[in-house]
């Protein structure tokens, strides 16, 4: 494990996420994130770990432009988040999907409609959307529940729907904020396998978690945050799961 973080002088063309000396402050004198620099390549699976309040969620929110950095530069899919116009944020979010601990599903809509919403926003025809949604629901093993509503599904199934929604638009980057935080251990592995399979298909995946067991099981690159700073950047050990 190496201490501190080194950023290459010449960034790799394969890096989809780059942060240069990024800091984020919500209150004057108090830093949620402090001088963070990192690069994450295409198809890489990276864990963000650290105690509550370490800055994991803030870092993810900066990457999908829910927040702007107070200092530094962030390049995601070639876009500079610090300078991104408000009107350009939707285009970024079509390339950067997010999965949350609380699933964020629409309870009045069916599973199919929940997943299709990510295609609706780009004007995909209903017929093409149905085909694509079926395909991705099959990947997560829920094609037979597509006409059900979220509340009739278990927590693990709801998270699988959220992952299907995140993957249906074939994003370049997938961010997951404690995606297994409310699931039991068996479901945790099931959900994490689905997320890892996205990385195997070439999507850059960043998972924020405080589940040490999960990190040890997958043995992928792990950035450990404490008090808003990256304390360690442990490389991928290449272990297969």
């Amino acid at each position: 494990m190496r201490r501190g973080v080194q950023v290459a002088d010449r960034p790799s063309d394969e890096s989809l996420v780059r942060m240069y000396h990024v800091s984020k402050s919500y209150l004057a004198g108090s830093w949620a994130l402090r001088d963070v620099s990192l690069e994450i390549g295409k198809g890489e699976l990276v864990f963000l770990t650290g105690p509550s309040g370490a800055g994991k969620t803030t870092l993810l929110r900066l990457l999908f432009a829910a927040e702007r950095p107070s200092e530094g530069q962030i390049i995601v899919c070639g876009r500079n988040i610090a300078r991104l116009r408000e009107g350009a944020i939707p285009a970024l979010r079509r390339r950067v999907s997010v999965v949350f601990q609380d699933f964020k599903l629409l309870h009045r809509r069916t599973i199919e409609e929940n997943v299709a919403i990510a295609l609706e926003v780009v004007g995909t025809s209903p017929r093409a959307a149905r085909g694509r949604v079926f395909q991705v629901l099959k990947q997560v093993g829920l094609q037979h529940r597509r006409y059900h509503h979220p509340l009739s599904l278990s927590g693990g199934e709801q998270q699988r729907v959220a992952i299907a929604r995140a993957l249906v638009s074939e994003p370049e980057v997938l961010l997951a904020d404690e995606p297994t935080g409310s699931l039991d251990p068996d479901l945790t592995i099931e959900i994490m396998d689905l997320i890892a399979s996205a990385a195997a298909r070439g999507t850059t995946v960043i998972v924020a978690t405080h589940d040490v067991g999960l990190v040890q099981r997958y043995r992928k690159r792990t950035l450990h945050l404490e008090a808003g700073r990256v304390r360690t950047d442990a490389p991928d050990t290449g272990a297969s799961v």
Partner: peptide
């Protein structure tokens, strides 16, 4: 508002 948040997260524009 929950729906609007989700639409915004998946890349829905102001017009959408």
């Amino acid at each position: 508002s929950d729906e609007l948040e989700i639409v915004s997260l998946v890349g829905g524009s102001r017009t959408f």
